[in-house]
C-alpha cells in the first residue's frame, strides 16, 4: 500500500516539508481540517510559531482528531515548533502540547533570532555524512524518558529523538536539500 502523509498547514513552513516529500515521491497533502486526516498514514507538524499553531488547532477543532489519529498508531514528525507541540513537558509553560513523546523542551532554548545558527551534526543512524542543521529560534530538548531513542545530541541537548512512531528534530531538515530525516520518518514511523 502506498503511503500518504499530511503536513499540518495552519501556519509555518509546511510547504518546505511538502517539497521534501515530493522529492521522495511520497503522496502528501496540506492539512487544515480534521476530515483530511482520514486516509493518511502520518502527520508532519512543521516549524512556525507554536503559540499560533496552538491557537489555530483549537479554533479549527483539530486537537482531538489529532489525538485520535495518534491512538490509531499513525506516525508523527515534528520539527522545531512541531517538536514543542509533540513534547510531554515544556519548561516554565502550561501551554497546550500533545505529549506524544516523552521529552522535556525549553522554548527558544538557544535565545532569540540573533542566536539562530547552522551547524553540522553527527548522527550514526543517518550515516557518516554529517547532517547540515539549521536552527531558528530553536527549542532545546533538555531531558527524555527511558523509552526515547536519542538519535543525535550535542552539548547536553538532544537534537533528534524518537519514541515508537514519533520523531522530532529541533532543527529544520526541510530547509535544506537533505531528505534523510524525512526518508527515515517514512521508513521507521509509518
Amino acid at each position: 500500500m502506498s503511503k500518504k502523509i499530511g503536513v499540518l498547514a495552519l501556519q509555518g513552513d509546511f510547504e518546505a516539508h511538502q517539497r521534501m516529500l515530493n522529492k521522495l515521491s511520497i503522496e502528501n497533502i496540506a492539512v487544515r481540517k480534521a476530515e483530511q486526516l482520514e486516509d493518511l498514514n502520518g502527520l508532519i507538524i512543521p516549524g512556525g510559531e507554536s503559540t499560533t499553531l496552538i491557537k489555530l488547532l483549537h479554533a479549527f477543532d483539530l486537537a482531538d482528531p489529532i489525538k485520535e489519529f495518534y491512538k490509531m498508531g499513525k506516525g508523527f514528525f515534528g520539527t522545531c515548533a512541531g517538536s514543542i507541540l509533540l513534547a510531554k513537558e515544556i519548561e516554565n509553560s502550561d501551554q497546550f502540547r500533545f505529549g506524544f513523546i516523552d521529552i522535556t523542551v525549553e522554548r527558544n532554548g538557544y535565545g532569540r533570532q540573533v542566536d539562530s545558527f547552522e551547524d553540522d551534526i553527527h548522527a550514526k543512524e543517518f550515516g557518516k555524512r554529517p547532517i547540515h542543521a539549521i536552527f531558528i529560534r530553536a527549542p532545546k530538548i533538555t531531558a527524555c524518558g527511558k523509552s526515547v531513542s536519542v538519535l543525535a545530541e550535542k552539548d547536553n541537548s538532544i537534537l533528534i529523538a524518537k519514541e515508537k512512531n514519533v520523531l522530532v528534530s529541533t532543527f529544520h531538515p526541510e530547509l535544506t536539500d537533505d531528505t534523510r530525516l524525512h526518508s527515515y520518518f517514512i521508513d521507521k514511523c509509518i
Binding site: F14, E49, V114, S116, L175
Partner: peptide, 17 residues
C-alpha cells in the same frame, strides 16, 4: 550564526501567519 540561510529561515517560519 547570522548567516543568510538562518535569516531567510525565520522568514520561512512566519509564512501563513
Amino acid at each position: 550564526k547570522g548567516t543568510y540561510k538562518v535569516k531567510v529561515g525565520l522568514a520561512e517560519m512566519l509564512k501563513g501567519g
